[in-house]
Nucleic acid binder design. Structure first.
Ligand SMILES: [Mn+2]
Ligand SMILES: [Mn+2]
Ligand SMILES: [Zn+2]
Ligand SMILES: [Zn+2]
Lengths: 143, 143
DNA sequence: TTGAGATTTAGAATTATTCCAAGTATTGAC
DNA sequence: GTCAATACTTGGAATAATTCTAAATCTCAA
């Protein structure tokens, strides 16, 4: 995670191509996401962001998250009815939701992109897989 | 769709095994869902249900939908942030969301249940695939 | 230096859903 | 059949997550 050398130009450039500026708030929100790979909600991002930037507002967190999503640096993850979660991992992957602890984990899709035969006429542009069950910790505990 | 002969015992029995009663409202909400295969929201179900049962309330529609889901007669479908949609098709299938018209379509998963290699320790119990793109009508129109 | 446009912010508004408490209906024991 | 226990429906209040709004602040380029 060579943050300064690699992250900065990337985030700057990505925002720029969407006509957005790199602001301290946006960078900080992105850092918060990169710091922990648990798919936090906007609320959780807000709480974490405040630690180092006490004056940041909830509205700004929503704005920043939106800017990061728009510029392709962050993915939104929606799990049934709950609050939207955010994921800075832009590699192709799907999400595993633990029904016991509520945790969300990345599952790499090596090459096995699920193949689904489309009925005539449908043009698929994007497909999303989500899995639910028990994470390793919870599975072990339930034994 | 031999409704009376086949639907009634099924819905009655399914509700019963969850300790729930078959009420006129529950049956009517189920009928509304069966009448059109377009994954309506609770609001839409409410509007349609009122046509033949003008005194039904929104709260009851939510309650009925919940009862039907609990007893395994109806599936909930969540598409990103939007209102939950409801689907009376209990065969294994996934959902196609048209980014142009917003329609939701059932896509049968013949046998091709997507195979995903689980990292060590994860116990998957359920997996869900959703696809977005253009439905046949919208795809043709965009040509 | 300056002003147009972008960004941040607090708080109001909105949306979808759940909760609540009261009234109504159904059921089974007698 | 009567009656109480239980289930169900209902309107409205409450909640949760998100979006909107309008004013203050910041940034960049001329
Ligand atoms: Mn992820
Ligand atoms: Mn469906
Ligand atoms: Zn877990
Ligand atoms: Zn369409």
């Amino acid at each position: 995670m060579g943050s300064v050398e690699k992250k900065m130009p990337r985030i700057n450039e990505r925002l720029a191509t969407s006509g957005l500026r790199l602001t301290p708030q946006r960078e900080h929100v992105y850092d918060v996401l990169l710091a922990e790979r648990d798919h936090p909600t906007a609320e959780q991002v807000f709480l974490r962001a405040k630690k180092d930037m006490p004056d940041i507002s909830m509205a700004t967190v929503y704005n920043c998250l939106d800017a990061l999503v728009t510029s392709g640096l962050v993915k939104q993850v929606n799990l049934d009815r709950g609050a939207t979660r955010f994921c800075p991992n832009m590699h192709e992957h799907c999400h595993f939701y633990c029904e016991s602890c509520g945790g969300v984990y990345d599952i790499g899709l090596t090459r096995a992109r699920p193949e689904v035969p489309m009925p005539r006429g449908f043009k698929a542009t994007h497909l999303e897989l989500s899995i639910r069950g028990l994470c390793p910790d919870c599975a072990a505990r339930k034994k």
